[in-house]
Amino acid sequence: MSEIALEAWGDHEALILKPPRSPLSIPPPRPRTAVLFPRREGFYTELGGFLPEVRLRFETYGGLSRKRDNAVLIFHALTGSAHLAGVYDEATFQSLSPLERAFGKEGWWDSLVGPGRILDPSLYYVISANHLGSCYGSTGPLSLDPRTGKPYGKDFPPLTIRDLARAQARLLDHLGVEKTTVIGGSLGGMVALEFALMYPERVRKLVVLAAPPRHGPWARAFNHLARQAILLDPEYQEGHPAPRGMALARGIAMMSYRAPEGFAARWQEAPELGEAYLDYQGEKFLKRFHAESYLVLSRAMDTHDVGRGRGGLEAALRRLRDLPALFVGIDTDLLYPAWEVREAARLAGARYREIKSPHGHDAFLIETDQVEEILEAFLP
């Protein structure tokens, strides 16, 4: 079990500082944007909405093999981005939007992608795209509606996890990838599950980290409280893009991402510092995310139920029995408890592994040594 040596950059500010398996890193990445559903076609959402055009921001690492059999598609969590790995050079960094710059120069899973690491670009063609509805370059509430020339804002249509998966499938078409290994954690794990059920012929292997097959009442309750913190804020009602309620929403979410063991280990002697940590996280969040994207994506999470329209949860998961699949739980996860992930693995006839950590749900982002060890036994 690891301990935090020093606070560093990270999506949830809790990376453990230790040398990577290889000191080599990938060249500075170049984010790209693809028009995947052009205006002549548009994108009809599962709930009946319509987007005249859909773009996804994405990054790739490595190249597609001649046999086109080495692709790995990574799905990020709720407030993640396409910037999976590497460190932006200054010119690229300055060309990004203010929110993307606030996210940081370093990729969110950088310690797993690079020469000699589990996702070695000399072996794999690694793809990571910002989800539809987000605020880091993909079509979302901040995007201009071609019909009006103004940002969608509150008029952005509601999405489901299946909408997110469908957009990512079109990205594979754009990149010439027919079949891929899919990996996702948290919200990304939900998208990975849906992708495998929607496009089984396109999935070589499936890895689901810290994600359930259905967004249940406990997880939905956390999302509800976070959204209420935003929706009831007068600043939000007046149209402010970063209302103070977002800081409270982030604090509520952080309490579901962490665990009592981690808080006790760090702040047992000075519990007020744990409170200050949540305040700090909230202040940082105001600078790097947009309220409408948070609302759109958290509501999409609440639609997640792989059994919907497939004869129920068990019937849906049984469809994965012929697919090599790995489900990874976390022993201290309060948001999606290990038993929930373990049961999904059993129903899917999949392998199950468990991360041991005091850091709760965020452990799939923090305990990268354990993640690497788990993936090493499954990916080859």
Rank of each mutant, 00 (worst) to 15 (best):
S128W: 02
V54K: 12
A71G: 09
V72L: 12
L172W: 05
H174S: 07
L171R: 11
V177C: 06
L119S: 03
Y61N: 01
V113C: 04
H174K: 08
A82G: 15
L187D: 06
G189D: 08
I161F: 14
A192K: 12
R166Q: 13
G114S: 05
A102E: 03
K150M: 04
R68F: 00
L193K: 13
R66M: 00
T160R: 15
V87R: 14
T148C: 02
G116T: 11
R57S: 12
E59N: 11
H131F: 09
D120W: 08
A129M: 06
D69N: 14
V177P: 09
N130C: 14
L193E: 15
R55T: 07
Y61I: 03
R55P: 00
K154P: 00
F50H: 15
L132E: 10
K67Y: 00
L64H: 03
P146G: 07
G188R: 12
R55K: 14
A77Y: 08
G176A: 03
C135S: 13
G114A: 03
R66Q: 08
D145T: 01
P52S: 10
V54Y: 11
I127Q: 06
S128E: 01
G62M: 09
E100G: 07
L193A: 13
D89T: 04
D163L: 09
K179S: 13
G185K: 08
V87F: 01
I74W: 14
D155S: 14
T60C: 11
G104H: 08
P98I: 06
D155T: 13
A129V: 01
L64Y: 06
D173K: 04
R55D: 02
G140R: 11
L51F: 13
L51K: 13
R162G: 14
L96W: 04
V126R: 06
L175N: 03
R101Q: 15
H76W: 05
T79C: 01
E106C: 00
F50R: 15
A167N: 07
L144N: 07
H174L: 00
E106M: 04
A167L: 08
E100V: 01
Y136D: 02
L171I: 11
G149W: 10
Q94M: 07
S134W: 01
H83C: 02
G86P: 10
G137P: 07
L56A: 08
A165D: 13
D173G: 01
R166S: 15
E106W: 00
D69G: 00
D89M: 04
S134N: 15
F93V: 03
D163Q: 13
E178S: 12
Y152D: 06
Y88F: 15
S134Y: 02
V182S: 11
S97G: 11
Y152C: 03
L51S: 10
L84H: 07
R101Y: 03
E178L: 10
D163V: 13
P115W: 10
R55V: 00
A77F: 06
I127W: 10
H83T: 03
P158V: 10
L175R: 03
R68I: 00
L175C: 02
P141Q: 05
F103A: 05
R147H: 01
L144V: 15
G188M: 05
L99P: 01
T181V: 15
L84D: 04
A82Y: 07
P98A: 02
F93H: 10
E59T: 04
I127N: 09
G86Y: 10
G80H: 08
L142R: 14
